[in-house]
């Protein structure tokens, strides 16, 4: 099926919102793929990080919503320090997560974490997981 591109998407609110929250110019990305090539979590992502940026450039919000990529990102910044165009992908991923989280939708449900997982887990892991993946 063809994806329809139009001024409504390419110049749409979604693109503006992502750029505003992340502080990044999405069009700085020239799609070299270096972020994806080095991403330590990309093996678990259904769409590579550079493809997420591409979808965001085109304003294809729905396609991004269908993907697990932004929830797998560990904000490790490997992509951002190597990006030849200086795009801070971690901030773009954060902006995309927040667009969901701010609708009061959690990715991690604290109540569902099994007690055996919690045992011995350092606070730093729990606090950062909740900060990143819950509303």
């Amino acid at each position: 099926m063809r994806v329809e591109l139009s001024v409504k998407q390419v110049q749409g609110d979604f693109v503006k919102k992502v750029e505003e929250i992340s502080g990044q110019n999405l069009l700085s990305c020239y799609q070299c793929g270096k972020c994806s090539a080095g991403c330590p979590m990309a093996f678990a992502m259904d769409i590579l990080p550079n493809q997420i940026i591409r979808l965001a450039q085109l304003g294809l919000e729905e396609e991004i919503a269908k993907s697990n990529t932004i929830w797998i990102c560990a904000s490790c910044y490997t992509c951002a320090v190597r990006c030849p165009r200086g795009v801070d992908l971690a901030r773009v991923m954060e902006a995309l997560r927040l667009l969901t989280l701010r609708k009061n939708i959690n990715y991690v449900q604290p109540i569902e974490i099994p007690p055996e997982t919690l045992e011995g887990m350092p606070q730093v892991a729990l606090v950062s997981s909740f900060r990143k993946l819950t509303s």
């Binding site: 070299c32 793929g33 270096k34 994806s36 090539a37 080095g38 093996f43 590579l48 030849p84």
Partner: peptide
Amino acid sequence: RGRVSKVFRDGDKIKVWGADTLTGKMV
């Protein structure tokens, strides 16, 4: 078609981590 993110020695070989952006695969 893609940049390489990391090049490192692995025994007798040199590992190259790249992306093939045309298929969307890490290689």
